[in-house]
Amino acid sequence: MQIFVKTLTGKTITLEVEPSDTIENVKAKIQDKEGIPPDQQRLIFNGKQLEDGRTLSDYNIQKDSTLHLVLR
């Protein structure tokens, strides 16, 4: 499925993911596309910070959902 990740600069990254993917996996995909190390990434969905060990389906993230990427 496709999800979107919006950065603070207003750029939107499109990712191909599975609901069973962990947040860690998603961060690795963002690193592949953008070169941002996962330990600098914080992903936010519906105002909640997403934890590495959880999956997209844990957070009820579905296709065409938009996550927000904050760098630390």
Rank of each mutant, 00 (worst) to 15 (best):
Q40R: 14
P37V: 12
D21E: 15
Q62R: 08
T9Y: 02
Q2L: 09
S20N: 07
I30K: 00
I36S: 09
N60T: 02
D58T: 15
E34T: 06
T9I: 05
T14W: 10
D64A: 15
L8R: 10
K48M: 13
N25Y: 15
T14R: 09
V17S: 07
N60W: 07
D52R: 13
P19A: 12
G47D: 03
L71A: 04
P37H: 14
K6V: 04
V5A: 03
G53I: 07
I13E: 04
K11W: 07
I3W: 00
L50F: 03
D32W: 12
K33D: 05
F4E: 15
T7K: 15
V70I: 08
L8F: 09
M1T: 02
A28F: 13
L50T: 12
K29W: 04
S57I: 05
R72T: 14
D32G: 05
Q62S: 08
L56W: 01
M1E: 07
S65Y: 08
D39G: 04
I23S: 06
D64P: 03
I23A: 12
G53E: 04
I3A: 01
V17I: 10
R72E: 06
Q49V: 08
S65D: 09
K6P: 01
S20L: 12
E16R: 04
G35F: 11
H68Q: 04
L67S: 01
Q49R: 14
V5R: 00
L8M: 06
N46P: 01
Q40V: 10
L43Y: 15
G53H: 06
P37I: 14
E18L: 04
L8D: 02
R54A: 08
S65P: 01
Q2F: 11
R72Q: 09
I30H: 00
L69N: 01
L15E: 01
G47I: 07
D64R: 02
N25R: 14
V70T: 09
Q31G: 10
Y59M: 04
K48F: 14
Y59P: 00
D58V: 12
D58S: 15
N60H: 15
E51I: 11
T12Y: 08
L43I: 09
P38R: 09
V17A: 12
P19M: 12
E24D: 02
N25H: 02
F4L: 04
R54F: 12
R42T: 07
R54V: 15
V17R: 01
E24L: 08
G47P: 01
L71S: 04
L69Q: 04
V70W: 03
I36D: 03
F45K: 02
Q40G: 05
K29A: 15
Q62P: 14
K11L: 11
I61K: 00
T66N: 14
G10R: 02
P37K: 08
Q62F: 15
K6W: 04
E24H: 14
M1R: 08
Q2H: 10
D58Q: 12
V70H: 11
E24P: 04
H68T: 03
N60E: 06
M1N: 10
E51W: 10
F45L: 06
L43N: 00
M1Y: 07
K29H: 07
K29S: 12
E16H: 13
K29P: 00
N46D: 08
I36V: 02
G53M: 04
K11V: 14
T66P: 13
T7D: 03
N25G: 06
T14E: 06
Q41T: 02
N25K: 05
K29T: 08
V70L: 14
H68R: 09
E24G: 08
D58Y: 15
E34R: 11
E18Q: 03
Q2V: 14
S65W: 11
L50E: 00
G10M: 13
L56D: 00
T12V: 06
V70G: 04
H68A: 15
S57A: 07
L69V: 11
P19G: 12
D32V: 12
L43Q: 00
L15T: 01
V26Y: 00
P38Y: 12
D21N: 15
T9R: 05
R42W: 15
S20W: 10
L15N: 00
T7Q: 15
R54T: 07
R54S: 13
D64E: 10
L50A: 14
G10V: 06
R72F: 04
S65L: 03
H68F: 09
E51P: 05
K27A: 02
K27Y: 03
I61E: 00
K11S: 10
S20E: 09
V70E: 07
T66L: 07
L69Y: 02
E34G: 07
Q41S: 15
V17F: 04
G53P: 10
K63W: 06
T12E: 10
E18N: 15
L56G: 01
T66M: 06
L67M: 04
S20G: 04
G53V: 10
Q49F: 04
M1A: 07
E34M: 07
S65G: 15
T9H: 04
Q62V: 12
R42D: 12
L15I: 08
G47S: 15
D52F: 04
H68Y: 05
L56H: 00
L56S: 01
K29Y: 09
R72I: 09
T12P: 14
Q41D: 01
K63M: 07
D39P: 05
G35E: 02
I23F: 13
S65E: 05
R42M: 11
L15Q: 01
Q2D: 04
P19W: 05
R72N: 09
Q41W: 11
S57Q: 12
I13P: 00
L71T: 08
K6E: 06
D52S: 09
E16Y: 03
Y59T: 09
L50M: 12
S65Q: 14
K63A: 07
L15Y: 04
D39A: 13
Q40K: 08
Q2N: 05
L56K: 00
E34P: 02
R54K: 02
L43V: 09
G10F: 02
E51R: 13
A28E: 05
E18R: 15
P37R: 05
Q49H: 12
S57K: 12
V26Q: 00
E51G: 03
Q62A: 08
D64H: 13
T22G: 02
G10I: 03
D64V: 07
P37G: 04
T7A: 03
T22R: 11
Q62L: 13
P37M: 08
N25D: 02
D39V: 08
V5S: 01
E24M: 03
E18G: 10
P19T: 11
S65F: 15
T14S: 09
G53T: 12
Q31I: 10
H68I: 15
D39H: 09
S65V: 04
D64N: 03
T12F: 10
V17K: 00
K48P: 02
T7R: 13
L43P: 01
Q41R: 09
T22Y: 05
T12I: 09
K11P: 05
T55W: 13
L43G: 00
K33L: 11
L67G: 01
T22M: 03
V5D: 00
T9V: 05
E16A: 08
Q40M: 09
E24I: 07
D32F: 15
N46V: 11
F4R: 02
V5T: 02
T7W: 11
E34Q: 12
D32H: 03
N46R: 06
L56Y: 01
T12W: 10
P38S: 14
P19V: 04
K11I: 12
Y59Q: 02
E18H: 06
D39I: 09
